[in-house]
Structure formats: C-alpha cells, structure tokens
Write a protein that binds this DNA or RNA. Structure first.
Length: 109
DNA sequence: GGATTGACGCTCC
DNA sequence: TGGAGCGCCAATC
C-alpha cells in the first residue's frame, strides 16, 4: 500500500492538473508515472479516485479518446456532459479533436 | 494463497 | 486495413 500510495498520489495529482477544457489518456499518465505498460493501473486508480471528488476522472480517457469509463459514472452521459461543459466536443462517447485538446503530463510536468 | 478482473495499450495474424 | 489476443500491476473475491 505504501508503494502504491505514491502511484495513486501521482495519478490524482496529474488528474487534478489537467487544464480546463483539456483531456489526457491513461497511457499518458501511466507513462508519466513510469508504468507505461500498465495503463490499466491508471484506470483502476481512477476507479478508486472516483471515491474522491477531487479527481476529475472525466478528463481522463483511453488513448483513442473514447469515454470508456463513462459507464462508471452516475449518469449514462454524465462524463460527456462534464466534458462538453468544458468545451470539449464529444460524439458517440468519443472526444473530437482529441489531438488538439490532448494534454500531455510529461510535456507540462 | 491462488485465480479472476479491470475506466488500457501494443503486437501479431 | 481490420480484428483478435496477450501482457501489465494491483486489488478483490
């Protein structure tokens, strides 16, 4: 738990640092954390992060820009609503212009 | 303690 | 070019 605590902490930290109207991918965070091959851990961390209200998990999507985790939110399209609220265009659970609004933690951090 | 799952990603066919 | 399968690390059952 101690060792993973850092992993969680970093994951949450990065998630919180995501600028308004920007999004990132699990893989990007995983890479930043040094666990690039374990993007699943980031997703899993987000699951726990969902328990925390401070982590904008809705800004984190998979490498394709698809809102794979939206099903885990309260509403069916709550995640999409949140993103659209930030100016992010989401169609069919997929973020449009993903390349443009993609926020790379390594580039900023 | 062992097996399965998971909000992913990459490689192989 | 498209689809399917395997691998990762940690947690839960």
């Amino acid at each position: 738990m101690k060792k993973t605590e850092n992993f969680f902490e970093k994951t949450y930290e990065v998630a919180r640092l995501i600028p308004f109207g920007k999004v990132t991918s699990y893989g990007a965070i995983a890479t930043y954390l040094g666990t690039a091959r374990s993007a699943r851990m980031v997703g899993w961390a987000m699951n726990k992060a969902h328990d925390l209200e401070d982590v904008p998990a809705h800004r984190v999507v998979n490498r394709k820009g698809i809102l794979t985790g939206k099903h885990h939110f309260d509403g069916t399209n709550l995640m999409q609503q949140l993103l659209e609220n930030e100016g992010v265009v989401v169609v069919e659970n997929q973020i449009q212009n993903f390349d443009k609004i993609f926020w790379n933690p390594m580039d900023e951090l």
